[in-house]
């Protein structure tokens, strides 16, 4: 664990050095104003999920449960199985899910107490359980069904990108445990980060783009099939959510 932490800290240091060098290089080649703008870009954490590398093992779901002692029946992170087709032309894809930490979060817009907010310093959407009244408005408003009421606090709860780990230079628990390294986490405003490079070079997609939420969770080769929207009439499509609520919302 400590070794991992050291490696991560070293990587973070290298990233920063890299960012510094990149900023310096940009400052040399670009006008002063533009260079300053690059330097001031705040951290914006994001996740890229390469579904080609996901084996549907649910280790991320379990790690998340263990990290936060998520109560039975609730999930901060989960993996959906998407099955479709008719034998022999069939496929089974895995779709890891979590809060999308949107740039335009509906949950924040509707929160009547300001308990849910997007942190200006890193873009993570968080809930303050001491302020939240548990009105469930955010649960209704989230297009990704990422929220639930925590039975202990009575307040809304959801993934917070493992804020307590990220703050110490570690990656979120789901990323740390992922066997296939399908989850990649980092600062998407840092051009040297793996997420920024993947977003720049890969054909990434987001979930429910039409909602206008601008998610910070990106997918590579995700199967967006939904039983309610089969592209071929009468095609078999089934989604196993592995949640208490079996159906996607």
């Amino acid at each position: 664990m400590q070794e991992n932490e050291k490696k991560l800290l070293r990587r973070e240091l290298l990233n920063r050095i890299g960012l510094g060098a990149a900023t310096a290089a940009v400052a040399v080649t670009l006008p002063a104003g533009a260079g300053a703008a690059v330097a001031r870009d705040p951290v914006h954490y994001a996740m890229v999920i390469d579904t080609r590398r996901c084996i549907g093992c649910q280790a991320c779901s379990v790690a998340c449960k263990a990290e936060f002692a998520v109560p039975l029946g609730a999930t901060r992170s989960w993996v959906e199985y998407v099955e479709k087709g008719t034998f022999p032309h069939v496929s089974r894809q895995f779709l890891p899910r979590l809060c999308n930490h949107c740039r335009n979060p509906q949950c924040v817009n509707v929160c009547p107490t300001g308990a849910t907010f997007k942190r200006a310093e890193d873009g993570i959407v968080v809930v303050d359980p001491e302020v939240c009244i548990g009105c469930k408005y955010c649960i209704q408003a989230c297009p990704y069904d990422a929220r639930f009421i925590h039975p202990d606090t009575g307040a809304a709860d959801k993934c917070d990108f493992c804020l307590h780990r990220v703050g110490r230079g570690l990656v979120p628990a789901c990323v740390n445990t992922c066997q296939g390294r399908a989850r990649i986490f980092g600062d998407m405003n840092d051009p040297a980060s793996a997420v920024a490079q993947l977003i720049a070079t890969q054909p990434v997609t987001v979930l429910r783009q039409g909602m206008g939420t601008r998610p910070s969770v990106f997918y590579i080769a995700a199967d967006h099939s939904d039983p309610r929207e089969t592209r071929v009439p009468s095609q078999y499509v089934r989604v196993d959510t592995h949640r208490r609520i079996q159906e996607r919302r």
Binding site: C132, I133, G134, C135, K136, I149, H150, P151, D152, T153, G154, A155, A156
Partner: peptide, 9 residues
């Protein structure tokens, strides 16, 4: 009565 915090309370 419908509030999560009230029910937890």
């Amino acid at each position: 009565l419908e509030l999560g915090t009230f029910q937890a309370g």
